[in-house]
Amino acid sequence: MSDTPIINIQGLSKSFATKSGDQLQALDDINLSIRPRSFTCIVGPSGCGKSTILRIASGLEKASLGQVLYKGDPVVKPGADIGLVFQEYSLFPWLSVLDNVAAGPEFAGVDKQTRHRDALGFLNMVNMAEFKDAFPHELSGGMRQRVAIARALANEPDVLFMDEPFGALDAHTRILLQQELLSLWEMTHKTVVLVTHSVDEAVFLADEIVIMSARPGRIQDVLTVDMSRPRTRADKAFGELSEFLLHSLSPDRV
């Protein structure tokens, strides 16, 4: 870890009030630092609060305790430096694909011609340029996620958070998009933090894997993956690491 971290999560805790009035501890003392340009995957069972980490780190929610630093400054509200890709239903259904991708620059006040030209460039990166005039409901699930990724990139963030971005896709599309995401990452030098419940996805993508446990959400382990890319699932090391992760994710308490 030679570089200074771009994201620094310090003592982060989050509790929610349930309907019955009890406090539910979703996250308990999360500490994590993310190196610039690294690819980190957070894996964990559902309910471990892994999505909540991203929501707090992108400024959508407030922490109960602790803080998230971006380049040394606390994140207090959403900003253009940090992008977030959701699992689904995040595209604006009344806008064309091109206008969806141009949404961030539009909010920032970029003029129409410039933002459309730039958006087309990002659509090209995800091979969706020919669908620029289509509407989200006319696209397949995989295409929508490509557009969602292009839209996040079009805002030129340093950090890209992804909250189970391929969770709603079929297995084949999912593998395709994982490969595309890796080449985008290599091309754009973004720092990526991806939340997933798929061990396979984490092993395929990540430099670093954060393993979480649930109730309360805690970091159980952080692993560095030193397999070279492109990784193949037929590789022995791939299988061993997956097996190890599966094992640590299914402790005897389940």
Binding site: R55, G59, P78, L84, S90, W94, A103, A152
Partner: peptide, 28 residues
């Protein structure tokens, strides 16, 4: 859909943009 509002916020929309460019078109 709350995800639409979150997406807009993450993309940098201010409160008045949330009303004009997200809530009203979505509810139209």
């Amino acid at each position: 859909n709350a995800t639409l509002l979150d997406s807009a916020r993450v993309l940098g929309a201010g409160q008045s943009q949330i009303f004009r460019k997200i809530l009203i078109p979505a509810a139209m």
